[in-house]
Write a protein that binds this DNA or RNA. Structure first.
Lengths: 97, 97
DNA sequence: TTTCTATTTGGCAAAATTACCAAATAGTTT
DNA sequence: AAACTATTTGGTAATTTTGCCAAATAGAAA
C-alpha cells in the first residue's frame, strides 16, 4: 500500500471510528432533526455527563456535529446528513447475518 | 436509551467497527470489482499474512465480504456494494476539516 | 507419502478506547 | 459577589483492538 493511499484510508478509518460506538450512533439519530443539549442527551442515554461530553467531542472534532452555545447550554445538531445513509446500508449488513 | 434501541445501535456500531481500520477499508476498495487472494492482499498492504487473515475474518463475520476456496487459495470479493457509498460521505466529512 | 504453498489459529505484548470520578471552567441568576 | 447549573478536562483502571511470531490446518504437486 503506497504512502498516499495509506493516508487516504487512514483518514477514512478515522471517520468510521468516530461513528463506531452505540452512544455516538444514538446521538446522531437523536439530533438529526432537532438540536439537543449535553444534559438532555445524557438523560436520554443514561451515562455520566462527562462521558457524553467526550463522545460529543469526538463527533465535533470531525465536524460531523456542530454545537452552539445558548445561555449556559450547548445545543448540538447534525452537520453531515449523508451520515444517515450509512445507517441504511448498515441495516443491510445486519440483516445478512 | 431503552433496551431495544440500545441493542439496535449496538448492532450498527459493530458494523462501523468492522470498517473502522485503514487496512480493512483498503481491502474493500481492492476487491470491489476483482477478487483477490489473502496472499495478494497481503503483498499489496505489506503486513504479516496472519494479520491480513484476521482482518478478512472480521469483514467475513459480518458478511461484508465473501471468500471462495479455489485450489489452495481463498479469493475474497465484496458482498455488500452499498458499503462503497459510505466512502463518498466519509470523503465529505474529511473535506470539512 | 513427502514436500511445498496458502491460510488460519493461538498466544501474547503494545496500543487504543471507554467510563467513571473529581476538579476546573463558563455563564446565569440571586 | 456568591450560589447555582451546564459543560469540559484530567486522571485512571478496565476492556478491547492490533500485529507479530509460531504452530496448526488444508490442499496441491512431486
Amino acid at each position: 500500500m503506497n504512502k498516499a493511499i495509506e493516508e487516504q484510508y487512514l483518514d477514512k478509518a478515522e471517520v468510521f471510528k468516530a461513528l463506531a460506538h452505540p452512544t455516538r450512533l444514538f446521538i446522531i439519530h437523536a439530533i438529526k432533526d432537532k438540536k439537543l443539549s449535553v444534559k438532555e442527551l445524557t438523560e436520554l442515554v443514561g451515562i455520566d455527563i462527562s462521558t457524553m461530553s467526550k463522545h460529543l467531542d469526538i463527533l465535533k472534532k470531525h465536524k460531523i456535529i456542530l454545537g452552539e452555545k445558548e445561555k449556559n447550554y450547548v445545543y448540538y445538531h447534525l452537520a453531515i446528513p449523508c451520515i444517515l445513509d450509512f445507517m441504511n446500508c448498515a441495516i443491510k449488513v445486519i440483516n445478512k447475518k
